[in-house]
């Protein structure tokens, strides 16, 4: 399984979390006009949340554009979502939306730039998840 893909807005919270993970990761550009990265291997997406009080607009438009490509979407294996518990039930809603839309598991949720414990759990979780994904691939091929 390939790497991580993430989006981070100008506040930089998700980028700071990804930086602390210390894993290779590819960033979806902030500007609408910039080219979207070409994805060729299975990946996990890390995405912040920007919902209004009704849950609308939870997934950044750049991420929607990225996932609208069927070939890219076919390689998505799971989503990790950022948010703020101040938003109550809508905390990290982008993870629920992407999970439901793309039929992939919501792997983890974190607040703002995450804590040290979040990075430890995400690293361990990703390693385990990748191993399981590879087992599945082997079974399919056998």
């Amino acid at each position: 399984m390939g790497g991580l893909v993430y989006f981070s807005s100008a506040s930089g919270n998700t980028a700071r979390l990804v930086g602390r993970l210390g894993l290779p990761a590819c960033r979806i550009p902030r500007r609408a006009g910039d080219p979207v990265p070409a994805i060729t291997e299975p990946f996990v997406l890390i995405c912040p949340t920007y919902a209004d009080g009704y849950g609308r607009g939870a997934v950044p438009k750049q991420v929607i554009r990225f996932l609208n490509d069927p070939a890219t979407r076919a390689l998505l294996r799971g989503v990790i979502a950022g948010g703020n518990r101040n938003f109550g039930k809508l905390f990290a809603l982008s993870g629920d939306v992407i999970s439901a839309r793309c039929n992939v598991p919501l792997l983890y949720r974190f607040e703002l730039a995450g804590t040290g414990e979040d990075t430890t759990r995400i690293r361990a979780g990703l390693a385990r998840f990748r191993a399981e994904e590879e087992d599945k691939t082997c079974l399919t091929q056998a």
């Binding site: 849950g55 609308r56 607009g57 939870a58 997934v59 929607i64 809603l93 993870g95 629920d96 939306v97 992407i98 999970s99 439901a100 039929n103 992939v104 598991p105 919501l106």
Partner: peptide, 9 residues
């Protein structure tokens, strides 16, 4: 898997 969320996007 997330439950279907009504988004008007």
């Amino acid at each position: 898997i997330g439950k279907a969320v009504a988004t008007e996007d």
